[in-house]
């Protein structure tokens, strides 16, 4: 409902062509091809072990793909370290287990990368960090340590930390799977707000409510391949593939 009108500017942010990934002899991604345009919100879903996490982790090179091409915002992912660093500073990532740095305060967690990677002056970094904390609704937690926060608050800090680098793309790897039920909403609300602001997002999640309301496109993964993709309306009301129907019937 929100980003759909912006997809009119069909600018390609992420292009994947026949991406293959092996872990040892295990073939995790078996030729994944898709294109994600600016401002699109894509939900990736599928059974566990289907390769959906591996797929989004190849986009910022946390996992190396062995065959095929991945082009992020016009930069091709290769073994060139400068390309990898350039892409990483444009792609923010939020993890299932938050991965905040426990020895730094919330504010220092958010300021770290802007200070050390972007080389911003301290007051600028602090200003941006505080405004991001306000955006995710927890400015009062700035001087606390991550261990003193609830899971939902920690995940919102993680979102703010990723946004501090002013990324063009945000990757979410099961951001609500480690949360207690009553904290899922606050994180989804932050993500929803982000989607409404026009951010390009790829979200691995089982939150079908979020997928239905926020995403422009859903991609179903199974056994390392894209089984089916389409608008939430089509996926929920008219799935074409048996595997999609079966999976949806199991989780809804």
């Amino acid at each position: 409902m929100t980003a759909s009108d912006e997809t009119a500017t069909t600018e390609e942010m992420i292009v994947c062509r026949d991406v293959h990934k092996w872990f040892g002899s295990f073939h995790a991604l078996k030729g994944v091809s898709t294109t994600i345009t600016r401002g699109e919100v894509v939900v990736v879903f599928g059974p566990s072990g289907s390769g959906k996490s591996t797929f989004i982790r190849t986009i910022n090179r946390l996992e190396e793909h062995q065959r095929g091409d991945i082009i992020v915002d016009g930069i091709e992912l290769s073994n060139d370290v400068r390309n990898i660093e350039a892409i990483r500073s444009e792609v923010g990532m939020v993890f299932q287990s938050f991965n905040l740095f426990p020895h730094l305060t919330v504010l220092d967690n958010i300021m770290l990368a802007p200070l050390k990677v972007r080389k911003w002056p301290k007051d600028q970094a602090e200003e941006v960090a505080m405004s991001l904390l306000e955006r995710v609704g927890i400015p009062e937690q700035a001087v606390k340590f991550p261990g003193e926060l609830s899971g939902g608050q920690q995940q919102r800090v993680a979102i703010a930390r990723a946004l501090a680098m002013q990324p063009k793309i945000m990757l979410f790897d099961e951001p609500t799977s480690a949360l207690d039920p009553e904290m899922i909403k606050e994180v989804l609300d932050a993500m929803r707000e982000l989607a409404e602001s026009g951010m390009t997002m790829i979200v691995v999640t089982h939150e079908m409510g979020f997928a239905r309301e926020v995403s422009n496109r859903m991609i179903m993964f199974d056994e390392g391949v894209i089984v089916e993709e389409g608008t939430p309306h089509d996926i929920f009301n008219n799935p074409q593939q048996e595997r999609t129907k079966l999976f949806l019937s199991q989780i809804i």
Binding site: L62, E85, S89, F95, S97, L112, V117
Partner: peptide, 21 residues
């Protein structure tokens, strides 16, 4: 936890920065 270094890499920190920070 390996996620610590992973999160730092995803933020674009270099190997030395991850080690020392």
């Amino acid at each position: 936890h390996p996620g610590q270094a992973e999160a730092a890499r995803a933020l674009g920190l270099s190997g030395w920065q991850i080690t020392f920070l």
